[in-house]
Amino acid sequence: MNRALISVEGVSVLFPLYHGNARSLKKMVVAAASGRLGSDQRHRVVVEALRELDFQLVSGDRLGLVGSNGAGKTTLLRTLAGIYEPAIGRVRIQGSLNALLDPSLGMNLELTGRENIMLRGLYNGLPRPMLARLEADVAEFAELGDFLDLPVRIYSAGMVVRLGFALATAIKPQILLMDEWFLAGDAAFMAKARSRLEEMVRGAEILVLSTHATDIVRSWCTRVLWLDQGRIHADGPADEILTQYLGHPLPPLESEPLGESATADQPPAA
């Protein structure tokens, strides 16, 4: 298997803003008939979600994305996941990738837990023998018991969270993209979830994590990218950038940094 690699070269992502007018064919046609289509094209409002990003990640890199709301963190994750194709520039991804962006990805509340597990496996392109293992793994972690054959709709909130989490963390990729929702959850569950998540993070060659929780960034990430209004404001070693970002010196870290042990058991990047 090749070593994982992410290469982002001069990437900009533009979002066309569709107001009521542009969404409607009728209004477009009327505008065209009255000779206003040209001006509509020129005046189309575009939001520059990401602007001229350049960076590279190689095996062993653990990148934290920080920045205020709307800085483009989630858009960057979606772009790396290949969901949004950039309007300018290019993104190269080498290695298997799993993006934990949406807690309910592929989860259909009307379907049973077992059907949801099967669907997730198929979405990830797992061959049939793997599906059975996926189901066993998720069932064991989520502790759903007989509820596995009932629609997710009737699950308690806690059960839904356990199932979603177990599903998302069951398939271990080389490149892991994670949005901050993942770190939310009730304390009792998080204690159990933590070790599973950390194992997955450790197993991934590249981690890209978007979060406001600077403690997690410090313990998991070796490098931090500070995004501001779609641009890279600062990029460098985690502690250095976080100090700038927070505007005050960092307090001593409570938990053991995860990055050290992760890089220790891997051969150095070529």
Binding site: V91, R92, I93, N98, L134, D137, A170
Partner: peptide, 16 residues
């Protein structure tokens, strides 16, 4: 019992 990764694509490129 953790499922091992499946590399669905080894190299992909998205660009304008």
């Amino acid at each position: 019992q953790a499922v091992t990764p499946i590399a669905r694509e080894s190299l992909v490129e998205f660009r304008a």
